[in-house]
Design a binder for these strands. Structure first.
Lengths: 341, 341
DNA sequence: TTGAAAGCGATACCAC
DNA sequence: GTGGTATCGCTTTCAA
């Protein structure tokens, strides 16, 4: 079009126009904008006033092309509607605020192929870093991806030049939960598992087993029912438990959703919580404070985890040392567990 | 640097490199990539094989700059951790899949200033369209914004050259809820409101009032307690209701969260649901299916709403007619309402 | 159909 | 400190 024009195609002003009117060069305007180098007070004021008058806003797209970065952090979650992941995303969003980075959120829906595909999409959009929340990808795949973009992951241990991952101590958390039950006098403790291929679920099962063993309580296979981290899974599992005929006074659900389902199954049979049976969960979703009764559970500080992840990826991009303070699990005692004789 | 080079700074190939190796011009490669014009079979195959060999991926950043568009849809939500908004976002994400658009999600936290600021950020990032989920901005502000970018909004009626907004019929939904209660024999019906300045909350209150009037039931001011769409608000409101001494057999909560809080307050006092008091909510959050008892409520098809919004914004950007099919509210009868004599 | 070349708007290197 | 100028990698006239 017009080679000599200084007005952007979309009607907005450009660095050149600002420069021309302010009587300086585009380079100087750029320097002022980015604080890349000192600009004399005189010119600085001139530039400032022109920017003001023209209501100039730098074109991010042009900047992105030139710098090769989109000032965007890709976030791979597994579900957009899960309160669990939502908390973590909120934490990421929170720390990213004001850093100039914006999160680009995609969901892998717990499906390795979809995760890989979405990540490619993120990379194609030139994200500067990637945060991976859980998922089914193999560590090796992530490590390979990390050659192309810095990655921080949650729910897996990872260490590499451009990769870092941590999980919370789910084993410890499960031990705490079962210890609590035992301390309240429970001996027949049922467990509803999570998905067998889920690392956290495995750790929680191990914690359950080891804690029983530690207290010389014989584990009964009939007291371990498979669940899938969902309410319906919890409901079904509880029915199976009840039908087994094996008695139990407490249930440890592998996560809160499972506990909700179990609790409903109990309700349907007229079994009271905690008078007849105690229930303990894992996660501490927001709603767990308002279930009837409010759920005793192991709290995952997901918002803090999200903040931690966000901080980490920004540091990693800046090539700074991470030195993170990873938040810890904690037992939240509410009203779904009763002391028994 | 190297003027003659055809390799991108980041190591990836460029159109030029592909062009050179395939023995065609960059323009032709571009045409092939975008289907902008016919490319002879011969050249097409050459290009395809080179792309394959080089594993070439077009640089989105450069394309964005050139086309002036980021192939991104800004989504303004009010909360990243609300199941309510999450459903809508999932719906948007769902329809955007495969359109080439990616959602860029930001939260306004129910704060007009923050909303405006986040929207500016979105516009600065050159989003091609904007979806606004509820919020405190004035319609006029949105209409003005629509001069800069196409906007589709939920939770408000809007109509303009580059703006469209719809809400669901909250008034109707509230009427349905109260009708249901009355049909089950309830006459003393309490209502816990939402925020007074929230359009939907106002409509629900109006529906409550009008339906009582329609059935010649005198409204009692003591039976209307202010809430704020949160569990704690519901809990407090219920205590106030109870303390008023005025009797009631059913509660209509302005939303499900409020119902959860009210339900817990009832539980604390040993009042059974629905045997002693019936409860009905509004929204139908996922968890409402697993509360004890499962909650009777008015369902908002938020996922469908999200799909609708996503479809609308894409069409609006493409300058196509919208002709939307807006999903409707519906009553979901579960177990929290009892028939009384 | 195809290619050459001119930008999109900003950044950054290189001299001065 | 400051300005000229060459890119960043792609799309899109314009001519052929």
């Amino acid at each position: 079009m017009r080679k000599d024009s200084t007005t952007a195609a979309n009607g907005g002003a450009t660095v050149h126009e600002v420069a021309r009117i302010a009587g300086v060069s585009a380079a100087t305007v750029s320097r002022f904008l980015n604080g890349t180098a000192k600009v004399s007070d005189e010119k600085r004021q001139a530039i400032e006033s022109v920017i003001e008058k023209l209501n100039y806003r730098p074109n991010v797209l042009a900047r992105n092309l030139k710098t090769g970065s989109s000032r965007t952090i890709g976030v791979l979650t597994q579900s957009l509607v899960s309160g669990y992941f939502a908390d973590a995303m909120a934490g990421i969003d929170d720390v990213l605020q004001g850093t100039g980075y914006a999160p680009l959120i995609v969901s892998g829906h717990w499906h390795a192929d979809e995760e890989a595909e979405r990540i490619e999409l993120l990379i194609a959009r030139r994200v500067d870093g990637l945060v991976i929340l859980s998922g089914k990808l193999k560590d090796a795949q992530i490590l390979k991806l990390a050659n192309r973009v810095p990655i921080v992951a949650f729910g897996r241990q990872l260490e590499g030049p451009q990769a870092y991952g941590f999980s919370l101590d789910n084993y410890w958390g499960a031990c705490e939960a079962v210890e609590h039950l035992i301390l309240q006098g429970h001996r027949q403790i049922a467990f509803i598992t999570g998905p067998a291929d889920h690392l956290d679920a495995q750790a929680r099962l191990a914690g359950y087993r080891d804690t029983l063993a530690k207290h010389k309580i014989k584990e009964s296979p009939q007291l371990v029912a498979p669940g899938d981290f969902s309410e319906s899974g919890g409901l079904l599992a509880l029915e199976r438990l009840l039908e087994s005929g094996k008695r139990f006074s407490a249930i440890f659900a592998a996560n809160d959703l499972t506990a909700y389902g179990a609790r409903l199954a109990l309700y349907r049979r007229g079994i009271r919580v905690p008078e007849d049976i105690s229930v303990i969960g894992f996660d501490d979703l927001h709603s767990s404070m308002y279930t009837t009764p409010p759920l005793t559970t192991v709290r995952q500080p997901l918002f803090e985890v999200g903040r931690c992840l966000g901080t980490a990826i920004v540091k990693m991009i800046a090539q700074e040392p991470l030195d993170l303070e990873v938040p810890q699990l904690s037992l939240v005692v509410r009203e779904s567990v009763r002391r028994v004789a």
